[in-house]
Design a protein around this nucleic acid. Sequence first.
DNA 1: GAACGACGTTCCTAATAGTGGAACGAAACG
DNA 2: CGTTTCGTTCCACTATTAGGAACGTCGTTC
Lengths: 279, 279
Amino acid sequence: MAPLTSRMRAPAAPSRRRHDTARSTGPKSLKTVGEAMTLLEQFTVERPRLNIPALQKLMGLPKTNVYRLLSTLESLGYLEKDRASGYYHLSLRLYEIGSRSLVNFNLRDLGRRYLQQLNERTEETVILSVLDKGDVVHIDVLPGRKRLSATSHVGARLPAHATASGLALLAFSSPEVVDGVIGRGLAPVTERTITSPAALRGVLGEVRRAGVSSNYGGRLREVFGVGAPVIGRSGFAEAALAIAVPLPYIGPGDEARLKRAVAEVAGEFSKALGYVPGR
Amino acid sequence: MAPLTSRMRAPAAPSRRRHDTARSTGPKSLKTVGEAMTLLEQFTVERPRLNIPALQKLMGLPKTNVYRLLSTLESLGYLEKDRASGYYHLSLRLYEIGSRSLVNFNLRDLGRRYLQQLNERTEETVILSVLDKGDVVHIDVLPGRKRLSATSHVGARLPAHATASGLALLAFSSPEVVDGVIGRGLAPVTERTITSPAALRGVLGEVRRAGVSSNYGGRLREVFGVGAPVIGRSGFAEAALAIAVPLPYIGPGDEARLKRAVAEVAGEFSKALGYVPGR
DNA sequence: GAACGACGTTCCTAATAGTGGAACGAAACG
DNA sequence: CGTTTCGTTCCACTATTAGGAACGTCGTTC
């Protein structure tokens, strides 16, 4: 091996990049941009309004820097400041850009009718999700008609192994995807979350056989989830339809009924995408 | 006047800021952040995938800078690169952040049922929009059941004076908002767009009286739009419900029927928000 | 009502982080 | 098989950003 410290032009040598920030992600990244985006990420559903001291604590940056980032993002129109309180919140401008990222697959538009169908049929919260970098991302949600429905937000990103959607997606994904998820580690969310690789593989096998997944409190202790894959031409899952029911609403026989409903609607969706069940 | 060149601490002097970039928007903005965001904005529904030369032309930056911005944004997970073609596109990560900006008003979740109602009743594309900085922003869309439906995308930002939604919103907004829109100038979108302030005020008066707006090709030549305000406790419009119908589908009597439908559903929505019609 | 503390804002200079021309390799083209 | 186009790397210069310090202004507290 050649010494990596050499500074020569190195015509054929791989020549390590200078920094290797975090985990060797490409060339040097623009620091300020990263900080600005990190700041935007601090605004969550639970914590939608933040001020300078709060962000200071969250990000560990000097007050001045936070202030400058905020001012910049505000003048660009991505944040709005409540004049009186001094608190900032995300603006609709971000919603615009974010929405555009969905045009790449119009799954959401296609899925609307099936979501509605499932929603009407079960009266529960129904969810359409995709797998993105090993996580489940909800791209559409129709709230249940009953008084309380599981908190599922459009745009939410969740660990695949802890949700019914995720299990349905993983069961019908390529082995590499599953290995990737397992490789990252199966972090527990509740005490019922699947955390062992073997257990996960076992469950995925069952899901593959049954065509439906279920999740009894693996993400939220009080929520029961049922999921089914939406399969495209490739034979792999392109999305998952799921339903989330608060445990108090679950009676005997409901589980089977819900599973059937989800599986049927997801099956129709798959057919619409050009999937032919006969292998 | 004291000489501004002095470097003293200037205890009480107002002391002009150094740059005044563009239009005196607050303090100095972080350049790189602005460029990164501008780059993200280049990705639109019509043009969802871009490569370095394309962005170079669009932004007028040196190739290297574009490359660095792209690499940064990619390593942060906001862009994805198609390994083969070298083209970039927006990732779902942006969808996550964007979605969070909606929690500030849960209008969208509340509006779902009314959108569905209107959609079932008319079988046409229905839209829920709000006014943001003088523009209409679509926060939810249910596509029509007929074969073709007007292209309305969630997240789209459109000029208020050129859409049925916008007219409904403006008609039930405070005078300042209307003045603001007029002050910015009424840019024509098609040859039927309202462009004169007097004409707009006239139309808004009618809309206020009738409770519904209509738009005959003011934004898209071949689309007919009908809108109605969703009014909250304040008595001002919080949102607008609208319906977009391709002209070929419009028969005699349809216009009246559609107007009635939109007005009725929007009225129910308003009531749900706590609006009492008796002033 | 004076003294304190918390927060937003401005100032200023060292030095870091970003700029952009130049050059390279690899495909795609003709 | 030259030629163009695009992605990528290099590097020296300096514009740009970082961040400590100080200031003004509200609200609280005693």
